[in-house]
Amino acid sequence: MNIKQYILIASVGFLLFSCGEEVGNNDLDIGSPEEPTIDIVERSDKIKNIFFNIPSPMETSKILQGAGATYEFTLPSNPSAVDDYQSIVEQSLNMGIYGADLNYATVFSQTTETMLYLQCARILGNELGMEQVFDEETIDRIEWNLEINDSMQVIITEIFWEMNSYLEEDDRQSISTLIIVGGWVEGVYLSTQLARIAPDNDALKLRIAEQKYSLTNLIGLLNSYEDDDISQDMLEELQELDAIFNKITEVKTAGENHKDENGVTTIGGSIKLGMNDAILEEITAKIAEIRTDIIN
């Protein structure tokens, strides 16, 4: 085995463990990372990487807003609890929770809450070794744009991109994944609680049902860390939730794709999701249980 082949092994190891942040990977064609085979070394077989991701909390908050949801001050997590989270796992998951709350507050133009949750993100970001994300320039931009909703959305999105990219740079994708998990859990928690407040809002219920797709991808992402006990604990919780989401029926009708004069393609076809109130109640209870485990 020559030096180049060793380099290739190292590179493949890198691809397996560190490629993509907020992204998991799962090599289809080769054996476990601990048992490199000659196929890896030769690299004559093409490597097929599979990654997963889910919509960002900002997208989800926008979707909730579009579905007629309101801002409810009692729903987001308690900012005062930020100092209670001491372990990296607690900090990572709650960074996701606070991040979703931050996006919820920002989209609904709640300036005070936006600042509170930004502060939570900053504190946990510092604890997780990402203090450089909240540099002086970023703080100044926040201060100048606090009342400008669209600008704040861009700034917050950039902050989370910077965090994610730093985590990738430091080869800490499992933390990034826990942040994604926390963010998704809080998004679904907020959605289900908002649906309780507005039980006749069918658009909101549809958005909850659609989370079955994101949950599939989230489970795929967590499966990328099958050797990580923390990820496995969370994976089991989410698999139980997935079993409930799988009760939602799906009827697909094929449709045509077409491109408009602005070059925007509409991907046609309809997918009708069927979720009764009993399923919604099960989802509501389970997501609240998972969230309680994270924040307490």
Partner: peptide, 29 residues
């Protein structure tokens, strides 16, 4: 467009391929 803040990236070699599974919402462009 507003970047969704997520970074899906990988270092690849010639001949490599990658599949990325993403979820997209209706009523968004």
């Amino acid at each position: 467009y507003i970047h969704n803040g997520q970074m899906n990236s990988a270092v690849l070699f010639p001949g490599d391929s990658a599949d990325i599974m993403l979820t997209f919402y209706s009523e968004q462009q």
